[in-house]
């Protein structure tokens, strides 16, 4: 579904992503793990064309590497950015409506808002509240809900469990699986490597901008190097 070839991202002198090849098959959950500064976020931002890059990116067989972000979103790619980035002085409802900015089907949008509310009942109670007044966890739910509002074929999530209490992290993973069961392909960046690898069909380990290792979630869970570097000990 998504094919990345020889992706490079440079910020001035910093070569943040160095020639990555990646593939995200339709219907899969793919995860990207790696230390801080490894280039995970840069990779996702490059896919959405939010940063200057070189290389080719194709989605559903079409080259999207030169398309403006909105065209990529229109084709079915959606992203939950790192650090939530909800629109703090817009209401929760308005945030969700903006998530559907590329769509024109009023009634479909209404239904999907209800669908998001059913995934996150907390948001419905606070519909008219400014997003900035939500707790961190609630903002994260809103960011995920907002990304779903474009009815993506591919949902990319940049550390959706960041800063959440362990119980909430479990909820986030449940939601991820639920979204996946609805037919959405998922590309996930996670600090919580163990949980990510458990749900992932395939995983890439990024080290200083290059792919150091890749394999199925199960393989990597058993890999000693990965265990030592990312899963905290033996």
């Amino acid at each position: 579904m998504l094919e990345i070839k020889d992706l490079n991202v440079r910020y001035g002198g910093i070569h943040a992503v160095r020639g990555i090849d990646m593939s995200v098959p339709q219907g899969s959950i793919i995860t990207l793990i790696g230390a801080n500064g490894a280039g995970k976020s840069s990779t996702l931002r490059a896919i959405c064309n939010l940063v200057k890059k070189s290389g080719t990116i194709s989605f559903m067989g079409e080259d999207i590497s030169r398309l403006p972000t909105r065209e990529i979103v229109k084709r079915g790619v959606s992203m939950v950015p790192e650090g939530r980035r909800v629109f703090a002085d817009l209401t929760i409802y308005e945030n969700l409506v903006l998530g559907a900015y590329t769509r024109k089907d009023e009634s479909g949008i209404k239904n999907d808002i209800e669908w998001v509310y059913s995934l996150f009942p907390r948001l419905k109670e606070r519909e008219k509240q400014l997003a900035g007044t939500l707790s961190g966890g609630e903002q994260q739910m809103l960011a995920v809900g907002r990304a779903l509002m474009s009815r993506p074929k591919l949902l990319m999530m940049d550390e959706p469990s960041l800063g959440l209490a362990p119980l909430l992290v479990r909820d986030v993973f449940k939601i991820i699986q639920k979204i996946h069961e609805e037919g959405v392909t998922i590309l996930l960046i996670e600090q919580n490597a163990r949980m990510a690898l458990k749900v992932a069909d395939y995983a890439y380990v990024l080290e200083t901008g290059a792919i150091a290792l890749s394999g199925s979630g199960q393989e990597l869970l058993q890999n000693q190097e990965v265990t030592r570097a990312y899963l905290g000990g033996v």
Binding site: C48, L50, R70, P81, R85, F87, L90, L98, Y101, A147
Partner: peptide, 23 residues
């Protein structure tokens, strides 16, 4: 209006506004 909402979004966070599909 939709456009007004997009204006408010752009004034807070251009990158995220782009991710919403806003031109």
């Amino acid at each position: 209006t939709r456009t007004g909402m997009a204006m408010r979004a752009c004034s807070k966070d251009i990158d995220t506004a782009k991710l919403m599909g806003i031109d």
